[in-house]
């Protein structure tokens, strides 16, 4: 189960979070977890639009070595990248005039959060939520 959504405009961000919620539901995630996942996808997809203009969101079902099922979301773009990752992950810090809570908030909602960013090349953020057995 893999879904790839190209992000060019606001409707794509909405579509991505809807697809993420549907997949989470299919995998048996609770309503609260579905919502945590949908918020996170929404934040990452909107960040792509704000900072890079375009990019993609990939949502896939994954399995851990311990046979746990999860949902993995990777949001990537070829935008300007983030020069100070530590700042970007700080509550209340923003370089766009937003609320500055997108990344730290997403990190709190997810089980795993990984970010890779090269200035001038782009940003790739991977998040995971595991189904508790």
């Amino acid at each position: 189960m893999v879904e790839n959504i190209q992000i060019f405009q606001e409707y794509d961000a909405i579509l991505a979070r809807q697809r993420g919620r549907e997949m989470a539901k299919q995998l048996g995630f609770s309503l609260v977890d579905q919502t945590r996942i949908a918020i996170s996808i929404s934040e990452l997809a909107r960040n792509i639009l704000i900072y890079a203009g375009e990019g993609e969101v990939e949502i896939r079902m994954i399995e851990s070595s311990g046979h746990k099922t999860g949902l993995e979301i990777r949001a990537s773009d070829k935008g300007p990248g983030i020069s100070d990752l530590e700042m970007a992950l700080t509550d209340g810090y923003t370089s766009s005039g937003g609320l500055g809570m997108g990344l730290p908030g997403t990190k709190r909602l997810m089980d795993d959060f990984e970010i890779r960013s090269d200035v001038g090349k782009g940003t790739s953020i991977t998040i995971r939520k595991w189904l508790s057995s």
Partner: peptide
Amino acid sequence: SPYVAISMVEFGL
């Protein structure tokens, strides 16, 4: 809704 309240407070709003 309850699930909206839970997720939004965890998120930071």
